[in-house]
Design a protein around this nucleic acid. Structure first.
Lengths: 206, 206, 206, 206
DNA sequence: GATGAATGAGGGTTCATTCAT
DNA sequence: GATGAATGAACCCTCATTCAT
């Protein structure tokens, strides 16, 4: 069964398999053979399209960054009331991490390697220019309405919003163990979602 | 000059070297040879004392958990005013992650492996029974004084406090890149510390 | 811009690129991809014209043999005085190796492979029938004039003439290192040229 | 059948096997697996003792240089009559190349790689300081006796002596083919030995 | 004639681990 | 308790070659 001549499909299947593998085992633990097998592609094609393992890792990372930022953009926060916008971003971010744990492990791997790959990427910074401006605007509107306290930096806020969910979900195994609770039980997840929204919105109050 | 016959010292040097190596490269990326070299110990000794690489990893993890919890205990939060206690814990947690980045990468590794090692550990959960009770008490006192809002779960709060610093510091490389800011510049660190304290304390307000 | 449909040119560009590659890396070290890239040709064309890598190697070798023998022929030794003819051949051979180091490495590769390719070639022996006869004639004339000693075999002489330059130039890197001299410095080259001429002509004296 | 614990023997068996392999296939064509198999050693040991393939190549090269120079030294040319000394060196050099073709292919490989390994070696140049002085002395004595012509450089002479045999033997396959003669037939070898001696000694005559 | 995509065998190297002393 | 030597599986990557168009 030779792989039919569909370059775009071959490439995307490799990328998908790689994302899965890197997410599960990290960059160092990922196995090129497994990626090729899962993609039902010849190992050689991986190098044909992505250069080497690290090139493939960067491609996967860029792809996942593009994915979350695209999803974020479709929230259309610019047209919403400031408090609604923040709440919506908080909920979206929580749900995104919940539904895409592979993104968190990819980021952990990249940071373990001191951002070596993302530093070389031109695409990644480009994707984020929009986000900060958008959040700044939301904060400004909230301040103008007298709802939000002043002086909140949009980057700091974003990191807080993401951090609330990220730490909980990324470290779910150790946290579940040390606190002797199943943090992934449906009820626990619902409670955390509510807790985060409460924390962020209360923290922004005047 | 062979390593003098000082078993305890040999063991602790291996543990220290291992912590350093695991923190830097992750469990998968860590190299037994490098650990032995850095500890100036024979590789065989590593197996003698810790069984295998994973046993060594668990030992390092337990050691680091013990370290942070001990440091935390010396804060003596039980004798402080509720707001002061929270602020002190927030600051401590931030500073601990800042000063001990190896702890974060260790935790990331352990979670990448789905908590496989910590699950087998009896010591780890024991160390944490104290922490939750302590925080619950602080929250209760704050509520009683009318300073804190009701219904805040101590575990959720702790995860929020830790998450605010953890995400920022653990993902410093990617975040610095996507937001085009040096998050580790002294000024940036000071701003983050203040931001976190503001967020947490505001979020707890009635 | 595809490679214009000029078959002869495509073929000769591949041959040229291959000669360069084989000379630089040897048969084993040569890379088919690099040859194709340097020739700006599709890799498939290489197989189309030359069968396989070894066919290409033989073609390059034959081409280079043809080149040196043609150049040699234009010396027109048959019309010269015996001593002048020998001197001229000596100088030519030295200069040819000096100007065409790729020929030496090609020969080294072929001999490393025990002459496997040249053995299959019909063209190569044909090219050399002339050379021996020519040299024999020169030697005979020199003997007849009482200038050269008797009994010198033309093949042995040719090998001596070539060997004097070949060893020096082919092994220039190791010799420069072991004798702690830059054998390729202009002055060193001039001295060697003179030394060789002296050696050969003195050796032939009666 | 584990390889008994005899480090020195393990090392030397690997070196021997490597010399054989490098001589036969060149640096690029040599296969680490074959070397290990021939040495009946674990492949890993090769890296344990020699670092990598190139380290092993350098070790083999140094070893062979040491071998020829040691053999040369035992000729004790310093105590012989000048003409006898030259003749003896000529014969020795011819016979050495004849008996040790692996040395020639090793040198060819090293020169193909532009002397990359030998350049890093400290041992190699040290081995050769003696040789030039020795030859210079022989030449001087020959001159003083009125037997040798003046102005012959010892390094040039050595290269001529070696070159006479090297080119013939190293290129035996191509030369046999182009001259349509078996250059390795016993009679042919004897004739070449005589030819070389005649050439060198005649060339040195006053 | 010419092309980009695909192949599978095998390249050098490194790994965690264990043996014999 | 401690050591240097040894192991074999598996790692990432590259090779010459061929297929489908």
């Amino acid at each position: 069964m030779k792989n039919g001549r569909d370059p775009a499909r071959t490439r995307s299947k490799i990328l998908e398999a790689a994302t899965c593998e890197f997410a599960r085992y990290g960059l160092g633990g990922a196995r090129v053979d497994r990626i090729a097998a899962r993609a039902r592609a010849n190992k050689r094609m991986l190098y044909y399209y992505f250069g080497d393992k690290e090139g493939l890792f960067l491609a996967a990372l860029e792809d996942r960054y593009a994915h979350i930022r695209n999803a974020e953009r479709s929230l259309e926060l610019e047209h919403l009331d400031a408090r609604v916008a923040v709440r919506r971003l908080v909920e979206f971010t929580w749900n995104y991490f919940l539904d895409h744990p592979e993104f968190m492990t990819l980021l952990n791997s990249e940071n373990l390697h001191k951002g070596r790959h993302v530093r070389r990427s031109r695409r990644v910074p480009e994707m984020h220019s929009h986000l900060v401006g958008l959040l700044r605007d939301v904060l400004r509107r909230g301040e103008a309405q007298g709802l939000f306290r002043k002086g909140v930096d949009p980057v700091q806020l974003y990191i807080s919003i993401a951090g609330e969910g990220y730490f909980y979900l990324s470290n779910r195994y150790t946290l579940s163990r040390i606190f002797d609770r199943d943090l992934m039980a449906p009820r626990a997840l619902a409670l955390r979602a509510r807790h985060i929204a409460d924390m962020i919105l209360n923290a922004l109050r005047r």
